[in-house]
């Protein structure tokens, strides 16, 4: 991991989340406005979230990305279990 700052990409974050949380689905959206420090919006679906309250789930993500978050200005997250994700998708169809 060289150049942590500007090199931070949605793909890097996605990889970290997929591996670090054994996630089955991760979406990372780079919401950085031009000429601004980086912003990201992530959706993480992992069985590791089962039985954990929202605060705890977000802490898992924050801890995993502690290094990256130092270089991220704005960070939005949603953390779902596979069941919640399934239900959400079902509801959309």
């Amino acid at each position: 991991m060289e150049a942590a700052g500007p090199a931070l990409s949605a793909e890097t974050l996605r990889g970290r989340l997929l591996r670090g949380l054994e996630a089955e689905h991760v979406e990372v959206e780079d919401t950085t406005p031009s000429h601004c420090s980086s912003s990201f919006k992530v959706l993480v679906v992992s069985s590791r979230f089962r039985g954990k309250p929202l605060l705890h789930r977000h802490r898992l993500v924050n801890e995993l990305l502690a290094e990256e978050l130092k270089h991220i200005h704005a960070f939005e997250q949603r953390t779902l279990t596979p069941e919640q994700w399934e239900k959400e998708r079902g509801g959309l169809q």
């Binding site: 929202l54 605060l55 977000h58 939005e76 997250q77 949603r78």
Partner: peptide
Amino acid sequence: EFVGGCDILLQM
């Protein structure tokens, strides 16, 4: 008691 940030409050 700490509840969370914007994302958590929004989901709550």
